[in-house]
């Protein structure tokens, strides 16, 4: 009896060695799903931390004020650039679906072509993010510890002009309302914090916004960007493998492409929520 059982087992090769695939999925694909589940919890932890800190702060930088610049000198265009970034990810997700479909048909050239487009989309997204970070760090001087985006708590008018010099008498003073956002500029390495007088006659000075905003922004978009970057690297490797015919021999409908496809769609999925939390709400 015992020997028979052993013989039977060794005949049932592969398919997870039990003869029948659990959940009718390959080991690699199922484990990719569980990896993505764990990764979803990591991202959820970050985004929930963002929410908790946002709730804990009396003011919070308004996204459509913070993210209103775009390349080629465009300013005052709220959320436009980040919408373009979202489109890049959506399009690269769609081309990835096409690559997987071509893989099921065992069409090597189709797989390579659509994966190449996916890689271009991902690289384009990374380029946009690099521009966005460069603008925030280099031009608007936001950092992990300093957040120059503040908001007014009271109505009032400024006593200093935008360069920090007191208005001359007779000059019209700029007025603001409670809730209005401002960016504290830097000139020659010095922060220009404008003085103001509130409608109740109290003199105040512009303060930095909640510190956590900068740290959360760089941490969460950085973590997502790192996922995109590693995705692009893996896509590149798998595209080269597909092109050199590695997967033809496996005769499994380019399953490797399907697995990296799952990962790539997940990166798009996370962006849906990063986009919601950081930019839309």
């Amino acid at each position: 009896m015992a020997t028979e059982a052993v013989v039977q087992n060794s005949e049932q090769t592969d398919a997870w060695s039990g003869g029948k695939e659990p959940f009718k999925a390959s080991y690699g694909k199922l484990m990719m799903w569980y990896f993505l589940l764990s990764d979803a919890f990591t991202f959820a932890g970050f985004l929930i931390a963002y929410g908790a800190l946002r709730f804990s702060s009396p003011t919070w930088p308004v996204p459509d004020f913070v993210f209103s610049t775009a390349p080629f000198g465009i300013t005052g265009a709220p959320l436009i650039f980040v919408t373009v970034m979202s489109f890049l990810l959506i399009i690269s997700s769609v081309t990835m679906v096409r690559a997987v479909q071509e893989g099921h048909r065992e069409n090597k050239n189709g797989v390579v072509f659509w994966m190449l487009l996916t890689i271009i989309g991902g690289a384009g997204f990374l380029g946009c993010q690099a521009w966005e970070w460069n603008n925030l760090i280099g031009h608007e001087h936001m950092s992990v510890t300093t957040n120059p985006f503040g908001s007014h708590l009271v109505d009032g008018e400024y006593l200093d002009d935008s360069h920090g010099h007191a208005y001359a008498s007779g000059e019209t003073r700029e007025i603001f309302n409670a809730g209005d956002s401002y960016l504290i500029h830097q000139e020659e390495g010095n922060w220009i914090k404008r003085r103001f007088i509130s409608s109740e006659g109290v003199i105040g000075v512009q303060e930095f916004g909640p510190k956590a905003f900068g740290a959360l922004f760089f941490f969460i978009t950085g973590f997502h960007g790192f996922h995109v970057f590693s995705g692009v690297v893996f896509l590149l490797i798998i595209m080269l493998n597909a092109g050199s015919g590695v997967y033809i021999k496996r005769k499994n409908g380019y399953e490797m492409v399907e697995k990296i496809g799952l990962y790539w769609h997940f990166v798009d999925l996370v962006w849906v929520f990063v986009f919601l939390v950081f930019y839309l709400l």
Binding site: A44, G45, I48, G51, A52, F55, S56, S57, P58
Partner: peptide, 16 residues
């Protein structure tokens, strides 16, 4: 995560 969201947002509000 539904509970995590409720609990931590409540917590954030309490910090404020």
């Amino acid at each position: 995560l539904i509970w995590a969201i409720i609990a931590f947002f409540q917590e954030g509000n309490s910090w404020k």
